[in-house]
């Protein structure tokens, strides 16, 4: 039996196990299994797997969790909005404060040049780090196999 034929029969095995096989395909599978001992053995293994998984199920959580579920979702939604607003506000305020401080330091002639250069280095380093992290995130996103999934 050719490899493509075997692949097709393997797919048909799944359909048969799950009760989604058509009568025509069932006949084809039966003939294939009769003609190929290895496939017949594989079929028996698959039936055993199906039997075992059929005896398994998810562990159920305590029933009371469902009574609290919507409340938890609601609170989470509310907090999400809170976090977004708080984060945006913090970023704007921190940026403004940093700009004001830097301006004052640079305008102050009593502060040594080396300190001013250090401030410049800190600011430049911060910008480089931010750009680097953003670029890395972008490349990870581009390679993310699930990025096509609509959020």
């Amino acid at each position: 039996m050719s490899a493509p034929d075997r692949e097709k029969l393997r797919v048909l095995m799944m359909a048969a196990l799950d009760g989604e096989i058509s009568p025509g395909d069932a006949e084809e599978l039966e003939q294939g299994l009769a003609a190929d001992g290895d496939l017949r053995q594989e079929w028996e293994s698959m039936k055993r797997v199906k039997e075992v998984t059929g005896e398994m199920g998810f562990r159920k959580p305590p029933e009371e969790v469902w009574g609290r579920y919507w409340t938890s979702v609601y609170n989470r939604t509310e907090r999400g909005i809170g976090w977004i607003l708080a984060s945006l506000g913090t970023i704007v305020l921190a940026g403004y404060a940093a700009w004001e401080i830097v301006q004052q330091i640079l305008a102050n002639s009593e502060i040594p040049l080396v300190i001013k250069l250090a401030i410049f280095a800190v600011a430049l380093g911060g910008i480089i780090l931010a750009v680097s992290v953003a670029r890395e995130k972008f490349f990870i996103w581009r390679k993310d196999p699930y990025k096509e999934i609509e959020r």
Binding site: V11, M14, E42, M46, T53
Partner: peptide
């Protein structure tokens, strides 16, 4: 649907190997 079935086959093949 064909991919569903082939993934199922691959998963079950591994489970069968674990049982074997």
């Amino acid at each position: 649907i064909g991919t569903v079935m082939s993934r199922l086959y691959e998963a079950r093949r591994r489970l069968a190997a674990a049982l074997e």
